[in-house]
């Protein structure tokens, strides 16, 4: 943001970036700092709030707990919940990816004026709140809902298929909530894709699947990576789908964090969980960044080893 080079054309002086820096600190960094600080403090008298006394207890609690029977031992509960969240986020990102590539490619190959309309349609779900949209799925997936109603009406099933309040419903809700975040960046990449490259690949003897894998996917990779990040990270912290569609039976990490600031009254622990989420998110981003760089280096490498 701030460059040491002075007088370069169009760069202005260093303080020209000050408002941006200020917003960055005030709106992004400051809340994070508060969370990190809270995670190293002690609980307030009745658990609501914090006491300004340094403690690493919240972090110990992440892995060790006094079990209900009283011994202090390694406790995988929170790791398991992290694992759950991770799994859900991964499945969500994967399903979104599989659905988005064909959708985005299809839109990108429409005439320019229709593309605008289609992209506009993709964004329509954003017009209503996620809560309402999630409730809509309660109706859709219900035992008495339209899907079971239809299947029953055509005689495909005699008993309703239980869909609501299952992990399946959670995934459906998550995928629905985050699908546009995958479609849009992939579309942005696909729209720039030069379809003559696909023709060239066909011409060189590549069948459809190979063209997709070797030519199209590398070209839309920036969109895919952006989409994966945009879906995976918020899915990791999602809150509504597991509660409302999953029936609240499998917590995701956000549900546990919310409880710490509510009925469980353990703010420092909630903050520590948040820091963990933050760390995991950063790790995931790092993995993505390394992956992206290595992939681009791989294809750019002159060494024959890579090819062969």
């Amino acid at each position: 943001m701030i460059t040491k080079k002075r007088g370069a054309a169009g760069q202005g002086s260093w303080w020209a970036g000050a408002p941006g820096l200020f917003y960055l600190i005030a709106l992004v960094l400051a809340p994070l700092v508060v969370i990190v600080i809270y995670s190293f403090l002690s609980r307030a008298k009745l658990g609501v709030g914090v006491k300004w006394e340094f403690s690493i207890a919240p972090y110990v609690e992440l892995f060790y707990s006094e079990s209900l029977s009283g011994e202090r031992s390694f406790d995988p509960t929170y790791l398991q919940i992290f694992g759950n969240s991770f799994l859900y986020a991964l499945i969500t990102a994967g399903v979104c990816l599989l659905l988005s590539i064909p959708i985005a490619m299809w839109i990108a190959t429409r005439p320019a004026d229709r593309r605008t309309t289609l992209i506009f349609l993709v964004t329509i779900p954003f017009w209503t709140s996620l809560l309402i949209r999630t409730y809509a799925f309660i109706i859709i997936l219900n035992d008495n809902g339209p899907i079971n109603g239809f299947l029953g009406a055509i005689g495909a099933i005699s008993m309703p298929i239980p869909m609501l309040y299952t992990p399946f419903a959670t995934v459906v809700g998550l995928v629905y909530a985050f699908l546009p975040f995958m479609i849009l960046p992939i579309y942005a990449s696909a729209e720039r894709f030069d379809f003559r490259l696909a023709e060239a690949a066909y011409d060189l003897g590549a069948a459809k699947w190979t063209v997709l894998r070797r030519i199209v996917l590398p070209a839309i990779r920036p969109g895919i990576i952006a989409g994966l990040v945009l879906v995976f990270i918020p899915a990791l912290g999602s809150f509504l789908a597991p509660e409302l569609l999953g029936g609240g039976k499998t917590s995701m990490i956000a549900n546990v964090i919310a409880a710490q600031f509510g009925a469980s009254r353990n703010w420092p622990f909630g903050a520590a969980l948040s820091v963990m989420v933050l760390v995991i998110t950063l790790l995931v981003l790092l993995v993505f960044a390394v992956l992206a760089r290595r992939m681009s280096r791989t294809s750019g490498r002159s060494s024959w080893e890579v090819l062969l």
Binding site: L68, T77, Q80, T250, N255, A259, S264
Partner: peptide, 14 residues
């Protein structure tokens, strides 16, 4: 007690 409530509830909803 709240801590115990939390532990048992978290375990229940795991």
């Amino acid at each position: 007690a709240i801590d115990l409530y939390d532990a048992v509830f978290t375990s229940f909803k795991k």
